[in-house]
Nucleic acid binder design. Structure first.
Length: 677
DNA sequence: GATCCTCGAGTTCT
DNA sequence: CTCGAGGATC
């Protein structure tokens, strides 16, 4: 039987409580500090429940450092200020190699006679700096950094962080103040947000803010269920311990006392050693379980640190070398509306240019008006801009506290900004559209661009700039006009010589030989993308029957319902569209007869669905897709449980994770090539 | 009618 | 890549 009930005598109970404290603390240490669990979850729960049961029977056996007290019980009224006994320093920043070389040179100049300096290097975590006071090995106080001189008492919350020991191991000194960074893992952050979303609560912006917010909670019960973690990185006030000669040695001792130190700490030599470490961490950065915003270098010898001293509140012996940030603040200068090929009006924020994630960003899409209202972005607002893992900049949120007096709300225009036609917004739909159709130059330009694009007609060399000129100069109205352009005409245009013009004409000639599926896609029929175009092509086999088909007949096609069928039917009913198609055919646009579906659906990979993520070595993703289709397989963009295989190349995206969650079979490039035969 | 699966459309910068 | 919405399925 389990020992849920308390021992009969108090003496027995006291002895058992001692044992349980020890066992639970040991299990916590192995799990949270060493990251090497030796106790099963069930076993751990049994120990904790037994302790709770005894404490319920004998309340005076509850001590402040009991593992049960970690859960956090009573909220505090407000956070109490704490004066740091030794100030918590801020660090100078280096933003490039030159800054770092200068730092190393200054250090060497001040330390006369030292040729090469030894540095302790460690990742700089994106979290919250906290000071921890241990007296006689027992945690008595934890305080935030605050302004460096005064912080706030957050002991009640810090007790709930399992990686922070309540009691140090071995023989700790009389007094030990250590500094560490409290942070949240990315996975923990995501899981937390997913839960919040499920419960309909508001989500958090990033792990850093969430960690900072959690630690400054008044109610420790709110902190207890947050996945917080900690790394210790320096020593403050000490009594009863003679510091070793080097910082790296001090960190070793912290480890021995059961304080979690980053496993990535290294000792490096000179500026070149620092830069190599920076490089290595930069490569590791995307694979780490937590966010880091740079690395920190500290002169390793304490004697040298003392010799170097401080400038105001920053030490001369340490520097933070920052990575390009994933997130930055910037100001929304204006919001303009772009018109897409279907007439969709997209609000785009024009931003004060800002360097984020390695590039300068000056535009960010706001998708649609629903999004604008949800985020309540106004012109003049300061916003948080993200470019996480992803490439596309995203406005995460508005910093409302920094909204200026005259911040202007964003209004959907009633007329198209390009052609002045009415703007139409169907209720319950997110997008608003310009009703100008092909009369609108913006829509005409965008449809021509789509027509020429790689996955459609694939006219190499016909880009935005050229199309703008051709449309503005009224030389091209429909796609068919493109093929009528002469070398002489093209050579007239800006940035075009005889040679490029000849090349472009040649490219257009080559593009005339195409496939029915590409051609249908190029026409830009609403709701007909690549997949639907391919389905239509293989169902009808030729263009003629499709043009004449009734709505009902079109609905026969797999994955085509009433809405899409109506769009397709309507498109071919338009006299203008028929004329354009006719003209294109006359210009020599042609394709081989298409195999009907029945014939295409045999092959080695028939009935299998593939999703590709990451970069493949031996071929592009498009090629891989073509090979799969050629063997009768299907390629899809998103992973579901109907997916047969997920093919993973180098640097895969979130699809790999999804595949693992759903238990979908994952193939590496080698396995994929084998499957292809 | 609800839910899941896909597809389409739009977007950034070098 | 992400969001929104059409289509299929139960």
């Amino acid at each position: 039987m389990t020992k849920r009930t308390a021992p009969a005598t108090k003496t027995a109970a006291r002895a058992r409580v001692g044992e349980l404290h020890e066992q639970i603390t040991q299990a916590n240490y192995q799990y949270y500090v060493l990251d090497d669990p030796q106790t099963s979850d069930a076993q751990y729960d049994r120990l904790l429940n037994e302790l709770k049961a005894i404490e319920a029977t004998y309340p005076d056996l509850v001590t402040p450092d009991s593992p049960t007290q970690r859960v956090g019980v009573t909220p505090v009224g407000q956070l109490t200020p704490v004066v740091h006994s030794t100030p918590m320093l801020s660090l100078d920043n280096a933003f490039n190699d030159e800054d770092l070389n200068n730092f190393d040179r200054r250090v060497r100049e001040r330390l006369e006679g030292v040729e090469s300096v030894e540095y302790a290097a460690e990742p700089k975590l994106d979290g919250l700096a906290v000071s921890f006071r241990y007296e006689g090995g027992r945690l008595v106080q934890a305080a935030t950094r605050g302004d460096g001189l005064r912080g706030e008492d957050v002991t009640h919350n810090v007790r709930t962080i399992k990686a922070v020991p309540m009691q140090l191991r071995g023989k700790p000194p009389e007094l030990l103040e250590v500094r560490g960074e409290v942070f949240m893992t990315i996975a923990g952050f995501k899981a937390m947000n997913a839960q919040a979303l499920e419960r309909g609560e508001k989500t958090f912006v990033n792990p850093r803010n969430t960690a900072a917010g959690s630690i400054r909670q008044l109610d420790p019960r709110q902190t207890a269920n947050k996945p917080l973690d900690v790394f210790f990185y320096s020593v403050g006030e000490v009594k009863g311990w003679k510091l070793p000669a080097k910082h790296s040695e001090a960190l070793e001792q912290l480890r021995a006392w059961g304080l979690k130190v980053s496993p990535l700490v290294e000792v490096v030599q000179g500026a070149s050693g620092c830069l190599a470490y920076y490089q290595r961490m930069g490569e590791k950065r995307p694979k780490l379980a937590y966010e880091i915003d740079g690395v920190v270098f500290k002169v390793n010898s304490y004697a040298q640190q003392r010799e170097l001293g401080f400038v105001s509140r920053a030490p001369r012996w340490a520097i933070a070398h920052k990575f390009p940030a994933h997130e930055e603040n910037t100001v929304v200068k204006d919001v303009e509306f772009q018109v897409g090929r279907t007439g969709a009006l997209t609000p785009v924020a024009r931003l004060e240019p800002v360097f984020v994630g390695g590039v300068t960003v000056s535009n960010a899409t706001l998708h649609n008006m629903d999004e604008v209202e949800r985020k309540d972005v106004r012109i003049g607002d300061t916003v948080v801009l993200r470019r996480a893992g992803d490439v596309i900049p995203e406005i995460v949120k508005v910093i409302v506290e920094r909204r200026p007096e005259g911040a202007k709300k964003i209004k959907l225009p009633t007329k198209c900004p390009v052609c002045k036609s009415d703007v139409e917004k169907v209720a319950d739909e997110a997008v608003a559209r310009c009703t100008g159709g092909l009369f609108c130059p913006a829509q005409r330009k965008e449809s021509l661009r789509h027509f020429a694009s790689r996955r459609a007609m694939d006219i190499e060399g016909l880009g935005t700039k050229l199309i703008d000129q051709l449309v503005d100069g009224e030389q091209v109205h429909t796609p068919a006009d493109l093929f009528k352009l002469t070398v002489a005409q093209l050579a007239e245009l800006d940035r075009m010589g005889e040679k490029s013009a000849a090349k472009l004409v040649e490219a257009m000639q080559a593009s005339k030989k195409t496939t029915l599926s590409r051609f249908l896609y190029a026409l830009g029929i609403r709701d007909v993308g690549e997949a639907t175009a391919a389905a239509l092509a293989s169902h009808f086999g030729q263009l003629g029957p499709l043009i004449e088909a009734s709505e009902e007949a079109i609905q026969e096609v797999a994955d085509v319902g009433p809405v899409v069928a109506a769009h397709v039917h309507h498109f071919f009913q338009q006299k203008h569209n028929r004329e354009v198609i006719e003209a294109l055919r006359e210009q020599g646009v042609d394709w081989p007869a298409q195999k009907k579906r029945a014939e295409a659906s045999s092959g080695a990979l028939a009935g299998k669905t593939f999703v590709i993520t990451g970069t493949l070595d031996s071929m592009s993703r498009d090629e891989a897709g073509d090979r799969i289709t050629a063997l009768g397989g299907k390629v899809s963009g998103s992973v579901s449980k109907k997916t047969s295989y997920v093919i993973v190349g180098a640097e895969p995206g979130s699809k790999l994770q999804k595949a693992q969650e759903l238990g979908v079979e994952v193939l590496d490039e080698k396995g994929f090539l084998q499957l292809l035969g």
